[in-house]
Design a protein around this nucleic acid. Structure first.
Lengths: 344, 344
DNA sequence: CAGACAGAGCGAAACGTTTTGCTTTGTTCT
DNA sequence: AGAACAAAGCAAAACGTTTCGCTCTGTCTG
């Protein structure tokens, strides 16, 4: 039904090779160029990407595997990622791992079957097992948000540890000495943030009683329940660090339902700046991640690597492979009004 | 590099046709079947979808075009949509229109260029212009969430009008007579909800003074500012209908910052049940949309239509095309505690 | 037992591009 | 003027599948 390059050949009298050359930006006589352009317009011709892909073995498609798509952080990143890749002519196939490592593995295999030119992965867990198939197949991979300590791929993330360190330092700077931490040690970002918190507390000579360290999932429930328990302590903390967006959500909920008020009775600082931090009154003080840059750098690294793979294929003696990098972007603290000086 | 069907031919001694038959579930001698299976395993053979796509002109890929991807409602739907399609063997290419009709058009063209087998569109605006290219090309389309009044495509949506009617009825049932409406008439869902509200007010013989009808965008800002203005009225409303998620967000923010409290001073009911409704204390009363069903029905309709297109291509005298439907799912009201009896 | 028929397999022709190596044409340099 | 060279174009061979029409071998039917 749709017009093919052969129809153009018929109309213009030129050869397939010449037309292909035109389509791929080669040099033609202005006269022939015009002929082809007219024919394309008349016939509504469009390149059949499958045929092209078959011979070039490029699909102009990037696979994106996210740990959980119904998550605001993920969506925001996805949004930037998508528009950047689109600008470069790539389509995006997104797969949701629903926090299930097995599904993650399936997704990667599935996307490889679809012959994606590269993969962006926001991994579910700590194990780098899922990297084997793409690495074996020579498909470029960039890890996003979460590192898994594998030096065979690029990775773009945020300085979780340092930013958390600063956040706790900030609480201490306001005079707080009883500081609680609600976080997670099941995902690597959670671990890093935890690490930063602990370091800061140590540097400030602040003890962290077991009752004030709440470890669980990065979930609303965990935030909610932890905050309830903290507020119920005989001698509750005066400030709390909240490890991610969902935890913030749950914790704020718990505070709202309690007789405590923020920041008068309890100061709060959280990781992840997303719409909802605007919902609470006062505005939350938060560590904001540079989402746009995160996405941009990821795309940059990925396309670079794809480009390199192509030259390798062409020349036998290609330049050395660019070293695999772990790019750490800086999150910064934005103060709202949820941290106040400790009252006596 | 990767093994092809020809390698299998060499190993097994069978013909390409037979191997292809196996791959597509045909009947073979058990003996040959075993041979092929062994060869596939040994060679790590995987079907090259591009080659297959070239001849079948099927990509096993669905394009999804959303009006705004950095939006919680969209993400949730996307999540369900993705897993359902994946189960059926389809990959999903998502494009974000960023609320820009022009970009929406580009996205659709782009995806058509990628030879998607079908399109799910959550449209930006009211005009059905973007439907022309896919309809002309005979690509199945299902509209999701927003209808554009074009009977040439299927559509799955929610009974915005009726649900809003019920919501306002509920407010009236609690004795409220001064009811405000914050909504939008720039998107079709907003219009329908508005319609429902107005009908309910009319049925209850409640007047809607101009100052109590706030029309704008489905945005946080609109919700925030409208609520501020409402609360500043000399005789403020005692109950408010909030037209969507973002408006709820803004409005709740405004209430929090004011001296009013909910539901004591002002009752609130909103459209869209998403995580954040849990954030406020009391829990919001909301109209919840059946997101999962929305996605499931969409996929069902789309795959049906794709299936039909295939049979049409095969038989000249195929059965009649299934009629295009507009499927309206029922949203239901879930009461939180944000609506109270009017105080005297 | 002849004829019909089903099952299993085969060869070859698509599908719509890109790419390779070759010809032709025209220009520049000595 | 002739050689050398660049630019532009061409025909044909890929790329990895599916599918069409055919053959062969049994098996069933009457």
């Amino acid at each position: 039904m749709a017009a093919t390059i052969r129809d153009i050949k018929k109309v213009t009298g030129l050869s397939l090779a010449t037309i292909s050359k035109y389509l791929n930006g080669g040099n033609l006589l202005p006269e022939n160029r015009a002929k082809i352009e007219k024919a394309i317009k008349d016939l509504h011709y469009e390149v059949n990407e499958m045929a092209r892909g078959l011979v070039t073995s490029q699909s102009m498609t990037i696979g994106v595997v996210v740990f959980d798509i119904s998550n605001v952080f993920t969506c925001s990143v996805l949004s930037f990622l998508g528009s950047r890749l689109r600008e470069a002519g790539y389509a995006v196939m997104t797969c949701d791992s629903q926090n299930d490592p097995q599904l993650e593995m399936d997704n990667i295999r599935f996307l490889m079957g679809k012959k994606v030119d590269g993969l962006v992965i926001m991994p579910v867990g700590l194990s780098p097992a899922f990297l084997e198939p793409p690495i074996k197949a020579g498909i470029p991979v960039v890890l996003l948000d979460r590192s898994v300590g594998d030096s065979r791929v690029d990775c773009v993330k945020v300085n979780n540890s340092e930013a958390s360190y600063e956040a706790v330092k900030l609480l201490a700077g306001y005079g707080h000495r009883k500081i609680a931490v609600v976080g997670s040690d099941t995902v690597v970002t959670g671990r890093e943030r935890l690490e930063g918190c602990l370091a800061a507390l140590k540097d400030e000579n602040i003890a962290l009683p077991p009752a004030c360290l709440k470890l669980g999932a990065h979930s609303i429930e965990h935030g909610y329940q932890s905050m309830q328990e903290l507020l119920a302590l005989p001698d509750p903390p005066t400030a709390v660090f909240l490890g991610n967006f969902e935890i913030i959500l749950g914790a704020v909920m718990a505070i709202n339902e309690s007789s405590f008020s923020c920041p008068d009775d309890i100061s709060v600082i959280g990781f992840d700046d997303l719409i909802v931090s605007k919902l609470s009154n006062p505005r939350l003080s938060v560590v904001v991640q540079p989402l746009r840059s995160l996405a941009e750098e990821t795309v940059r690294l990925l396309l670079n690597r794809i480009e390199y793979e192509k030259t390798v294929e062409a020349d036998a003696d290609a330049p050395d492979a660019p070293a695999h990098v772990e790019l750490v972007l800086k999150a910064r603290i934005v103060e709202g009004g949820s941290v106040a000086r400790r009252r006596e």
